[in-house]
Nucleic acid binder design. Structure first.
Lengths: 346, 346
DNA sequence: TATTGTATTGTAACCGATTGCATTAACTTG
DNA sequence: CAAGTTAATGCAATCGGTTACAATACAATA
């Protein structure tokens, strides 16, 4: 019933069958205005009937466009990232673009390797959220020099010819800290990631601004830079337990890390939020299953993916003039839950 | 300093510069044995010097191979899936394959669309974990008919010409249930997913076998099929709270769902594990941050990704003869934590 | 020395779609 | 009716590697 090996139909086959030239067939399939409407219909019909598929390689070879976009993310396994990717996919799909996705696993080395692969695959554009330890931007400049647009999202790098889509991390950091202050916290520790990354640097700046607003002292020992892993969460808790003067508030730039830290603190006998109030970041599902539920910052992942992809494709089509001097900033929002509510004055 | 638009070097350029034929250059770059070692070195050096990159489209057009593999997963945002993908990526990278990744978002419709995209992109092979509601296998048969290998992992479909990589879900389900029984549970509810999916059907069968082993009655009302979402977790908890005769054990085929369910039960005043012992599935990070920590089944995601990819590439290279009559089965393991320990007899 | 073998390189025809530049037919217009 | 338009289609080169089939040179063998 099913043929074992169906032969691939080309425009030459169609041309021969319909007694036309390959050129006409090609133009018809691309809806070229010079081709007669009836001819187009005829060709389209036959193509459908025989299951014709355009050979993208021949096409790409000739046109020098691949209709493929590269996406490099630190990790796929975060709720945030996969939500971003879902948003990107939706838009890319609508515009007929494919996605080549890879993860750097937070290593600049792997990020470079991924970028090279993308480059060799001749992606039409690149969307990147950089790794923890990325210092150099060389591997992206390669693209820019060849006029392949590069767009950063979330974790961005500064380059005059690259766009960026972010949230206002400074404001989010400020809001989170301000909330803790409003709950009466006066000794707040901020646990953050690598400060070379804008997301962490900005949140920290927001943190500092909030403290400054209350004329509170800025103690650098209260800013702890970690890799925000689960293990880091454990260590922070242990470290706090050892401190002579304990903090009364914690602002941790990652939900999972915060959740683990909270758990260990609870085991050690600290009352959350009464002894220590905690705020996380990202609105990861874990924030809802820990007890008490974790106050956090909602991050519009899906929207970010859609926006980034729309911007990229707009730039590729030339339909949208991109102003790279300013990043696109999306709204985030503080979600207040039990882990930080000390006064029931909602 | 940086040129605006570097011209792309081709083998013809290299050939002209070195006074050789393009054929020789091509062979040299592919390490063809007929080419003199010195010539190869010469060409390789010049190629590196000028920054030559092979044009994959020309190559693919000629060889009819794309060196790209498609991966379709239900969702990217689970710890399990992204771990699998990391494993796949590692192997694929080593063998010079690219990955085209997309998510079906648990919908057969989107899965079909994704498959079509992959097909049109002419992937050399396809790795799939099917969506919740996938009934038909047509969209994969398309590949098989064109001799493009299809390999299922985790959520598999049955087809004589497709390989499969799974864990022994039946055994895992048995072990989980047996553990609950050993803890003294006698009225165990099993919350599972769509029973068309092997992973859920098999776990359920393991569940039933364990009950049968203790001569316990098989009550179908104690098997609840849901979408295993967070919302489902809430509903299950509500449902249990309404039951006249409460269960004393819960085996839920997903950690996040189990975590939420446990949380709501706790809120309603049930003691975990004393009133109700709970076992989840997947060893998701959430299983460690809930309290009590959740007993679960460790799923070797990374290994699964590596194994699946290795199998696929082996088949493509013809280096490995694949026996599709039997799936490849990886080891899983029950991880016992507080949510189910009633007797301190470890 | 003539012959055969071996190592190395070259020639040229692909792969399939695209597109600048004709070409042809049909239609206007003066 | 001749000249000029317009519409529709065809020709052939091109994109850059790959590879079957020579061709060449030189050494080994008879």
């Amino acid at each position: 019933m099913e043929r074992m090996m169906e032969k691939e139909i080309t425009i030459y086959d169609l041309a021969k069958i319909l007694a036309l030239s390959p050129a006409t067939v090609s133009r018809a399939l691309n809806d070229h205005p010079a081709i007669n409407v009836k001819t187009k219909a005829l060709i389209a019909e036959k193509a459908a009937e025989l299951g014709y598929r355009s050979n993208t390689f021949a096409s790409h070879l000739r046109t020098r466009k691949t209709n493929t976009l590269g996406v490099i993310v630190p990790r796929l396994n975060s709720n945030f990232m996969s939500t971003v990717l879902a948003g990107m996919e939706e838009v890319a799909n609508n515009f007929g673009y494919n996605l080549l996705i890879s993860q750097s696993l937070e290593s600049e080395l792997k990020e470079r390797a991924n970028a090279k692969t993308m480059f060799d695959s001749r992606v039409d554009g690149l969307l990147v959220s950089v790794a923890y330890d990325t210092d150099s931007i060389d591997h992206f400049v390669t693209f820019i020099n060849r006029n392949i647009p590069v767009l950063f999202f979330d974790r961005i790098m500064d380059h005059p010819r690259c766009g960026a889509v972010i949230i206002d991390n400074e404001q989010a950091g400020y809001d989170a800290t301000r909330h803790l202050l409003d709950q009466g916290c006066r000794r707040i520790i901020h646990v953050t990631g690598d400060l070379r990354r804008n997301v962490y640097a900005d949140r920290m700046n927001g943190f500092k601004r909030a403290l400054a607003g209350q004329n509170l002292p800025q103690d650098n020992r209260f800013i702890i830079s970690t890799d925000l892993s689960q293990e880091a969460g454990r260590q922070i808790a242990a470290q706090i337990d050892q401190m002579a003067e304990k903090p009364d508030g914690l602002f941790i730039a990652n939900d999972l890390c915060a959740a683990i830290c909270m758990q260990v603190l609870k085991e050690k006998g600290y009352a959350i939020p009464d002894d220590i109030a905690i705020v996380g970041f990202n609105n990861d599902p874990v924030s809802q299953v820990v007890s008490p539920q974790l106050t956090t910052v909602f991050y519009p992942g899906y929207q970010m993916g859609k926006t980034a992809m729309t911007t990229m494709i707009g730039q590729l089509n030339g339909t949208k003039l991109i102003d790279h001097s300013e990043p696109i900033i999306l709204r985030s929002e503080l979600i207040i839950r039990r882990s930080s509510i000390r006064f029931e004055n909602l």
